[in-house]
Lab assay of single mutants.
Amino acid sequence: DNLVIALHSYEPSHDGDLGFEKGEQLRILEQSGEWWKAQSLTTGQEGFIPFNFVAKA
Rank of each mutant, 00 (worst) to 15 (best):
S32N: 14
N52H: 12
R27F: 08
E21Y: 12
K56L: 13
E34Y: 15
V54M: 04
A55Q: 11
Q31P: 05
D1F: 13
N2E: 09
S40A: 05
A38M: 04
G19T: 06
W35P: 02
I5E: 05
P50I: 07
A57V: 14
D15H: 11
L26A: 00
I49A: 00
Q39H: 07
A38L: 07
G44L: 09
Q39W: 06
T43M: 03
Q45H: 10
G33F: 04
S40R: 10
I49Y: 03
E34V: 14
L18Q: 01
D17H: 15
W35Y: 10
L26T: 01
D15G: 09
G19S: 08
I28W: 02
D17P: 03
S40K: 11
R27G: 00
S32F: 13
G33V: 03
I49R: 00
L41V: 11
R27W: 11
A38R: 02
K37F: 15
D17A: 13
F48K: 08
G19E: 05
I28A: 00
G33K: 04
L7H: 05
I28E: 00
T42L: 14
L26Y: 02
G19R: 12
N52W: 15
T42D: 08
L3P: 01
N52G: 09
L7E: 04
E30H: 08
F20N: 00
L26P: 00
S32T: 13
S9N: 10
F48Y: 14
F53L: 12
S9A: 11
F48W: 15
P12H: 05
L29K: 04
G33H: 05
H14D: 09
Q25D: 02
E30M: 08
G44E: 04
E21T: 13
L29I: 11
P50L: 07
F48I: 07
W36Q: 00
E21C: 13
E24S: 04
S32E: 12
H8A: 12
L3N: 04
I5C: 09
L29F: 06
W35Q: 07
E46R: 09
L26V: 02
S40Y: 02
Q39L: 11
Q25T: 15
A6D: 00
E46W: 12
N52C: 15
S13K: 15
E21N: 10
L18P: 01
I28C: 04
F53E: 03
D17C: 15
L29W: 04
I49H: 01
K22T: 06
H8M: 14
F53M: 10
P12C: 05
N52K: 08
K37S: 05
I49N: 02
E30L: 08
E21S: 13
L7Y: 04
Q39T: 07
L7R: 05
A6T: 07
E30K: 07
Q25L: 15
L3W: 09
E24Q: 07
L7V: 09
H14Y: 09
L3R: 06
D15W: 12
I49E: 02
E21W: 08
A57L: 15
P12M: 06
I49C: 06
A55W: 09
